[in-house]
Amino acid sequence: MKTVAETEIRNDMNDAGDKKRDEKFSIKIWGRFKKHPGAMAGSFLLTILILAVLLAPLSRYNPDTSSVNEMLKSPSWQHPMGTDALGRDMLTRILYGGRISLTVGLLVVAITLTLGVSIGAAAGYLGGTVDNVLMRITDAALTLPSLLVLILLSSILREVDLPLFSRNSVATIAVIIGLLSWMTFARLVRATILTLRELDFITASRGLGASHLQVIIRHILPNAIGPIIVEATLELGYAIIEESGLSFLGFGIQPPTPSWGNLLSNAQENFVKYPWLAIFPGLMIFITIISVNYIGDGLRDAFDPYKVLGKIGEG
């Protein structure tokens, strides 16, 4: 019979071993990621963008204060991205808009991860009726014409004043986009679990007394981590595009709160005379998405053990 102390020592040793292996794994992934020039450029751009967005309050201008003397100025040293119809500095508004757009993106990733991973894990691990019901729900959700449903939902919610979800706030938009895009994660996690469930080490772990939840979290999810991270990165891009698309149509984040989409939407009326209003918000979306996609591509290569590295984007 083992003493408590012994068990603890054993556990510590295990943990140490795990940590060492994890470290090696992450170093290996990083080493491969580093060799992907697109992914490195993407990470660099995205880091700059996030820093700029975080440092937005350092701007000399207030994003909401209008100024009659400065209306619709074309880009200059004072206003690198010009000013809008109310004389507000576009660069400042775009940085604040970036906060909104990136927040929505990150929230959507968090929501889809939580929903998708729990639904997928439940379906795959529990199997049987639960699996059947959850997968039918997933199928139905995949059949939704998502852009159209997003427009319908946000046009309805635009009129509602709920505590946290007043008039298409950041949370509302993130929740509705999230509700319509967890399915990829669910399928991914379920597929991984189905291939792992019957393996001996899972049975062994169950036999040693691990609960279902422990088995899922300790043994199954780590095996799916690569594809999940890749998918989460790409989801960030989709979410930002969807938010800006909705806001562009006027159904997303409502002015005066700036988001890249509604800045672009405002620009629409007079973009022929004031092209900078249309060029810059879209450019920011474009730079963000292309960076995120390159990072996703780099991660995919880094997690793929069969990939020959040192060459540009394959497949």
């Binding site: 891009g237 595009i241 800006s244 698309g245 562009f248 672009l264 620009a267 629409q268 973009f271 249309a278 060029i279 918000p281 879209g282 450019l283 979306i285 474009f286 998405i289 292309i290 996609n293």
Partner: peptide, 11 residues
């Protein structure tokens, strides 16, 4: 793939 079509149209 990264260009949002609503922006591309405006440009």
């Amino acid at each position: 793939q990264a260009i949002p079509d609503f922006w591309l149209g405006l440009i």
